[in-house]
Nucleic acid binder design. Structure first.
Lengths: 113, 113
DNA sequence: CCGCATCCCGTCCGATACTG
DNA sequence: CAGTATCGGACGGGATGCGG
């Protein structure tokens, strides 16, 4: 592993998780992949309205390098690619889900203000 | 709320959670507060060995503004401050715990490589 | 001990244009 | 449609020093 962005104590488990899912958009990408199983580059981009093409590609590549997602490219014209979670990536489900659940409750609280 | 760093779709729950817990060190801070109930500034800094004083203060302030933690200052010399989770902050427990659990498993996997 | 202000530099990231 | 290369401005975040 190259750089350790989050070394609190060596081996802090939260730190380890952050190595993988921190980074702009990563967890949101994972959230959509959890819901839809398979996503095209374009459909992801439509969901993440404020994420640039460049940024989306970068984050997808990192997730792929960490073996959280895998990519399948079809050479047809026009090109098409599919992204899906790996088995390893699916183990992140409880983490992403916990975030989604908390966020929903939080949104409801905010609305009543 | 001032800026929306993560607008995927408006109201995306994962995005809402990220508004609160994304940011360098925030979730690690919360992790320690969950374990120890009350932390002094200094003890937090000792845990987060690579977090500068400036950075720690900044993140604590943000968490305080979002009413996730609360601060108590004792005016004795030398100064002392205590941080603890608010009730609202305690609702983040499932999120942080899920991250910790995943990180532990991940660490064990890495060790066997 | 705790926390803020200032300075300053490295990186992130958006805009744009180009390729398969 | 999916992805890469390059550039330049914005911002994050470290170092340092001051003040409660």
């Amino acid at each position: 592993m190259k750089r350790q962005v989050f070394d609190c104590q060596p081996g802090c488990p939260v730190e380890s998780t952050l190595q993988i899912i921190s980074g702009k958009w990563k967890s949101v990408i994972l959230y959509h992949l959890l819901q839809e199983k398979v996503c095209h580059f374009g459909s992801l981009q439509r969901q993440l309205v404020n994420c640039s093409r460049r940024m989306l590609a970068l984050q997808l590549k990192k997730l792929e390098q960490d073996q959280i997602i895998e990519k399948i490219t079809y050479q047809d014209q026009p090109f098409k690619t599919e992204y899906r979670l790996t088995l390893q990536g699916q183990t992140l489900k409880p983490v992403i889900l916990a975030m989604a659940v908390w966020g929903e409750k939080y949104n409801r609280l905010q609305k009543n203000k």
